[in-house]
Computed example of a mutant assay.
Amino acid sequence: MDFSSKTSPTGRSTRWSYRTTLFPVFDGKPRKVPAGGNVLMVLTQNPNEQAAAWEWIRFLNSPEALAIRVEETGYLPHRDDWADSPALRSILEERPVLKLARQQLADVVPWPSFSGGHSLEAEQIRIEATEAILSGKKSPSTALEEASEKIRRLQP
């Protein structure tokens, strides 16, 4: 399954074709899609504030709030029942690119971290390489070779 359009995941028009396909598999191994990362935390010790924070978190994870987030940001829904929501279902119908995300939910695995106690530094190097590639400042091969070397030096 492969989709191409002039519409981004946020539903806005773009000057380029936006394409997506299933996450690749190699040598017959199972598909493993790394999960993204977000977190909502309640840090207060005040019981009234905790109750209010939990109510807010429940709302943020509701299909209604998730529909707003997907609509405005193009962020992929994080609930496995998201296509059951009328609001999210309509977004899914408008943006077939999201069907691939739903199709791959069963293949999601925890995000891998780097060994050796330098995960944050290694992740920052990866982020900077991605930005250099996407901004056109470096070719993919140059940015990835440089990032790989920097990350190798961090490893034990």
Rank of each mutant, 00 (worst) to 15 (best):
M1D: 13
F3L: 06
S4R: 14
P9E: 07
S13P: 15
R15T: 14
T20N: 15
L22M: 11
V25M: 13
F26D: 10
G28M: 06
K29C: 04
R31N: 05
P34V: 03
A35R: 11
G36C: 06
M41W: 10
V42H: 01
Q45V: 08
N46T: 09
N48K: 15
A51V: 04
E55H: 13
F59K: 13
L60Y: 10
L60K: 11
V70N: 02
V70H: 02
E71F: 07
G74L: 05
G74T: 04
Y75G: 10
L76G: 08
H78C: 14
R79V: 07
R79A: 14
S85Y: 02
L88W: 01
L88I: 01
I91D: 00
E93H: 10
E93Q: 15
R95C: 02
P96K: 14
P96I: 00
V97W: 02
R102C: 08
Q104W: 00
L105N: 07
D107E: 13
V108S: 04
V109I: 13
V109A: 06
S119M: 03
A122R: 00
I125S: 00
A129E: 01
A132K: 10
S135Q: 07
K138L: 13
S139D: 06
E146R: 03
A147F: 00
K150E: 09
I151D: 02
R152E: 12
R153T: 10
